[in-house]
Each structure stands twice: as C-alpha cells, then as structure tokens.
Design a protein around this nucleic acid. Structure first.
Lengths: 282, 282
DNA sequence: CTGTTATTTGAAATTAAGATTCATAAATAT
DNA sequence: ATATTTATGAATCTTAATTTCAAATAACAG
C-alpha cells in the first residue's frame, strides 16, 4: 500500500502552484501537521485556507479533518518520524515548539538504546549496590542529572551526595575509599571540573562511573565504568535539552536496577517515615 | 499499561452524577465516540455540552479533541497490545530494566500532548517573556525540574531563582512584585510547601504558573496559569520518574519559546562570555 | 434551624475551526 | 484583441468546541 506521503509526492506534478506549495510543506514537516489548523497551515505554507481545503480534495480526502487523521495513522505506522527535525521555523508558535520538543526528547531517549553497553551497565549496578557512599557530580546542564540521581539514591537509603560547588567536592573526595563510587556526569567528557574531580576520586581508590557521550574523550578513557549516552545533535540553541534526557534515562536505569535488587520494603520504609514527618510538620 | 477505558471505569466513583453518566455511556459505546461532536454526545448521554468538556478534564485530558484522539489510539492498539510492561519481572536484568525505562519515559513524554492547553501555554510564555524575576519552586522529585528551569532561564539572561529551602523562599517572596513570575512545580498539586509559597507569591502580586497534573488539586485551582502534565501512572516503586520527564518537557518548551522570541544572539553572548571565563580560570 | 459557602449543572454567549462563496487576476484559447 | 477558463485568496458562513454565568443543590458553620 502506498503511503499518503508518497501519494502526495506523486500528485505534486498534477497540482496547481499554490497546492504544490502545500504539498511540499507537508512532505517536509509531516509530523507537525496533525495538530495544526487550516489557519496555521495556511500561514506557514503561505497560501490561503481555501486552497488547503482544495488541496485535501485534490488528493482524494473529503475534508481537512479526514486528511489529518489519515496522515496521523500513516505516520504512526511507518514510523518515519525520524525525519530530521532540527530546523526551527521563524513562525513557530509555543505550541509548535511544544510538539517539536516532545519529538526531540522522545527520539533522544529512543537512541539511548544504541549507545549503552550491557556489560558496563551490569558492572555499574554491581558497584552501586555494594557502595558505601555514592557521590554524583555534574556541572551546567549535567547538574540536573546529578541532583536527580542524588535524590533517588538517598531515597533508597544510601549515603548519597552531590553539590554544584567544586570546592565543596574538593573537601569531600579525600574521604572517599575503595568502597565508594564517584559518578561523573558530563556530556562532552571534557569538562575540566568533572574530569579533575574524577581523577582525584580515582586516586583515592573510589570506583569512577562515567555517564558521558560515546566518544574518545578524556573522561571516557579514564573512567572505570562507562555508561554511554548517544551523540545526539548538540544544537547550542536547544542546549543540553536532549543530552539531559538521555542522562536521566541512564540514572533511572541505575535507580531501578538497584531498587529492584534491594526489594520493595526499602522504599516502603521511606514512605512510612515520610508520612509521619509530614504530619509532624507545623 | 492501563487503557483509557479502564481509567475511566476507575474514575467513575470520583465523578459527579452527570459526569458519571457520560463515563458510563462511553464505556458502553467506545467505538462510537471518536466520530461524535460534543453536541451529539451530550444529546445521547443526556447531559450538557459543558459537562462533557468538564468530564474530559476530570479524566486528565486537556480537551475533547485530545480525548477523542487518545481514545482512538487506544482502540486501535487494543489488539496489538505490546509487551505488557507494567509488571517488573523478578528476573529482570539491568539491561531489561533499561529498555523498560526507555519505554516508560518515552510514553510519558508522548502523553504530554494530551494534557497541554494551547492557550495556557501561550499565556505562560507571554508572562515569562515580560518577567523581571522568575522564581521556580518544587520539592522532592519535582525539584529536578525546578533546578533545570532555573539554569535554563539564567542562561537566557533572566534573574532566575530557585532553592530547595522553604525558609529561603519565605524570605525571597516578599520582594516579588506584579512584574515577577512564580513557577510552582508539583505533580500532585497538593504539596503543602509548594502550595503555601504559591499563595504567598500570589498575594504579593506575582503571576503564578503551575506545572502540575491535570486534576482538581488546590494548586490547579489557584494558579493564574496552568500548564498541565498528564496523569501518568504513579507507581511508587518507579517513583516520580515519569512525571519528572513530563515536567522537564514542559520546562523545555517554555525555554525554547522564550529563547525563540529573544533571538539567537542572547545565547551567543552567554557562550562567548563563558569561553572567556573558562580561559581565565586557574 | 438558618444563613453562608461551595459544588454541580445546563443555557447562553463566545471563540475558534472548517468549509463555501465570490470577485479578481492570470493564463490560455479563439 | 477578446472570450473563456482556471487559480487564488478575502470575506463570509456554518458548525464545533469552550467558557461564562446564573440557578439549583448540597455541605457546613454558627
């Protein structure tokens, strides 16, 4: 069966100038169409609303609504949503951007599967399970993952530490031993602060786990255990948005694995205690 | 994973009389709904159109349209039910868990589209654009989003503030004015600390934006602007993993929208300055 | 009880989306 | 050069979705 998009492509020749404009626009950004209105689409593609309705009829759809539905079904099936999405259009409204963000974040997470090494992951989980102290460190965009990880492992009963302050860390690391784990988070693997602290921690005998892009960076080379995030396009406009999603996915995995090993009762304790605290407050 | 219909069935108890009527009608004739208009459905189920809209919000859908779409997807998928994922198997290896986490996170982000209201989003972006100070607050799992947001808006040149410390916030809020924005982040919308600070900020005249689940929580009701996250299944074992992903997606959208408005040069400045700092250090 | 407040609800009004009409301009044929 | 067809968008109309508002009812405090 021919996909709707192929059909449009073939039809392009037969269409009038304005209708062709719409067709081309749709082929470029098929994922964006289903949540658009005729008005939006008309503005973005530079034709009138009337022409859009005519376009739908031209390619054999009874109404704009049917067209959107058909397109949606099509996209869901063919999974062509890998269409390069990078371009931000000048006229994008917040709602457009919202859908683009959803798409970018989803595909970032999806591509996590490619870069992860099964054995390294297992090693990391084993190390964390056995750890006495766990220290997380990341700066800039990567601090989000560090903070999140710290919180999650604290909930599991670990002595779990993080700070954004380099000097705080400098004072902390001397107390690490070979029973402890230092988790260094850096997308590029080249961030000076992270690298230096990781080296320091390693010198103290702690196991160093790196959550970093799959590449030949210093951090990648020097870590004991490497949990790799995919090299998602680092658009400086989008910032670290995508890489943060991948880092968090790795963190979630570590958390789930350790939690799964410890058993449910651990968290139950946490919740019971928390409830009590809640009732005490004020 | 729970189907939309199961979700409705479970919600029946909580709903008001009229809303329950709709719910029951939908459960009886699910296939018929996607083609109906609010008017038709209101006639058939014997309630007003307004109640139908309210029903959609009650079960966590941003609009009647989103509801119909979600229902359609649900019905289409019900046969091809993928790996039932909800249960964690005893023998799951870290690598298995990794793939489950990927799946859960992806679908959480996907369902963001259902609960977001286009107009509220626009209002939020406008408010942020015009803001003098922006304060983010979230505790527990939601602190991650607050920290991330604070960082992102700082990069855009805003006076952007967050802290985990309730008392720090208490000292900060008196200085807010009607030119400022307070962003309250809470999945449940019932967290005491968040709620109290949001009220306080509102009293000071600041605009209150809530990033919270679509439900009838106090925070939802009292906020000036509501950015709703979907009611993803809250398994206490998985923790706030999914809801954090949805919160971050909302934050990303706000960031992208404001950035897109300000123009690229803003961030360029930030990067230039940062490079210089880097070279100065040590 | 009684007055007060919150909740539920549908009628009516508003807003937004989609489809149609019609005048105009360009292309083509005669 | 004139008539005829075709393509197009502005304005209009129609329908659908959403919000507002006021009445009715339920819950509650004094």
């Amino acid at each position: 069966m021919k996909s709707l998009l192929t059909k449009i492509e073939l039809a392009l020749g037969q269409l009038s100038a304005a209708e062709r404009r719409i067709g081309e626009y749709i082929i470029q950004q098929p994922d964006a169409i289903p949540h658009m209105t005729t008005k939006e689409l008309s503005e973005k593609s530079g034709v009138s609303e009337a022409t859009i309705i005519r376009f739908c009829k031209s390619i054999g759809m009874g109404s704009f609504k049917s067209f959107k539905l058909a397109l949606m079904k099509d996209l869901a099936l063919s999974d062509t949503n890998l269409t390069d999405f990078s371009v931000l259009q000048q006229k994008d409204s917040p709602y457009d951007l919202f859908h683009k963000v959803i798409h970018v974040n989803k595909s970032a997470i999806e591509s996590c599967a490619d870069s992860m090494d099964r054995k390294e992951l297992m090693k990391a989980v084993d190390a964390l399970k056995a750890a006495q102290k766990i220290v997380f460190f990341g700066v800039g965009g990567s601090s989000t993952a560090a903070v999140d990880a710290q919180y999650k492992f604290m909930r599991l009963g670990y002595q779990s530490i993080t700070s954004l302050d380099f000097h705080y860390m400098l004072s902390l690391i001397p107390h690490l031993t070979e029973n402890d784990v230092f988790v260094a988070i850096s997308t590029s693997g080249q961030t000076k602060d992270v690298l230096e602290l990781a080296r320091f921690a390693k010198k103290r005998g702690a196991k160093v786990i790196a959550i970093t892009n799959l590449n030949k960076s210093p951090l990648y080379k020097e870590a004991d255990i490497r949990l790799c995030t995919p090299n998602v396009e680092q658009d400086f406009r989008i910032g670290s948005t995508s890489s943060r999603m991948t880092q968090l996915t790795v963190v979630d995995t570590l958390y789930m694995s350790v939690f799964h090993h410890l058993g449910e009762n651990v968290l139950q304790q946490y919740y019971d205690a928390r409830k009590e605290m809640e009732s005490l407050r004020r």
